[in-house]
């Protein structure tokens, strides 16, 4: 009986000794953090999700519309262009707790940002008149006609965006690179080495 009790004690001691050592070797997840660090992680996560939208890239695109109203008794041609803007942003409210993983021992953090969203931010109000040719017996283009030409170009651009991914790919890639640089510097300023990924 005495022998089995001492054997049990030895086994218990060994389990505590090696079990404790292996626990301290686990890479930092939020579960292993001290209460103070957990509060820090939780506060930072909460405030990051409250920072609304962060814009990392913007693209300007030129659209040109040619209006030809030539008839038998004279030419009537107008060429107009304007710029439209796209923006690539990250909606930080879509950040979830699993997207921010700290290793406080190694001072590293893995951040998985919400996907970059590309949307049309607007178009120039003014219109550039690139060329006009108005015959002697014809009247010049009016405001309504120019507005219609701009509208046709606007509709065409939306269709082009839907069928051609290249615009979105270019701006998304630039935005992702910028976001990585920004968040790396952000965490570095507080002594953390950051790995930035996207969903």
């Amino acid at each position: 009986m005495k022998q089995s009790v001492s054997l049990l004690n030895i086994l218990t001691f060994l389990m505590l000794a090696f079990g404790g050592a292996s626990c301290s070797d686990t890479s930092g997840s939020k579960d292993d953090a001290t209460p103070d660090m957990k509060a820090f992680h939780s506060d930072l996560y909460r405030e990051l999700t409250r920072t609304d939208r962060m814009v990392f890239a913007s693209m300007s695109v030129t659209k040109t519309a040619v209006t030809d109203d030539s008839k038998l008794w004279g030419k009537r041609i107008g060429v107009y262009s304007y710029d439209t803007y796209l923006r690539a942003s990250v909606d930080m409210s879509r950040f979830s707790p699993d997207d921010l993983i700290f290793d406080d021992d190694a001072h590293t953090v893995t951040v998985t940002l919400p996907p970059v969203e590309v949307d049309l931010s607007g178009r120039d109000m003014t219109l550039r008149e690139e060329y006009t040719n108005i015959g002697l017996l014809r009247s010049r283009f009016g405001s309504a006609e120019r507005a219609k030409a701009k509208e046709a170009a606007n509709k065409d651009f939306k269709k082009e965006l839907a069928r051609n991914d290249s615009f979105k790919k270019i701006i998304t890639e630039r935005a992702q690179n910028k976001a990585r640089d920004y968040f790396r510097s952000f965490f570095e300023s507080n002594g953390y080495e950051a790995t930035i990924n996207f969903k």
Partner: peptide, 22 residues
């Protein structure tokens, strides 16, 4: 005969990167 409007394909003018809080 209505006027005919032809639209040219879009041309990228420039891409700027930034870090802005909207």
């Amino acid at each position: 005969k209505p006027p005919v409007t032809t639209v040219r394909p879009a041309v990228v003018k420039d891409v700027k990167t930034m870090a802005r809080l909207c």
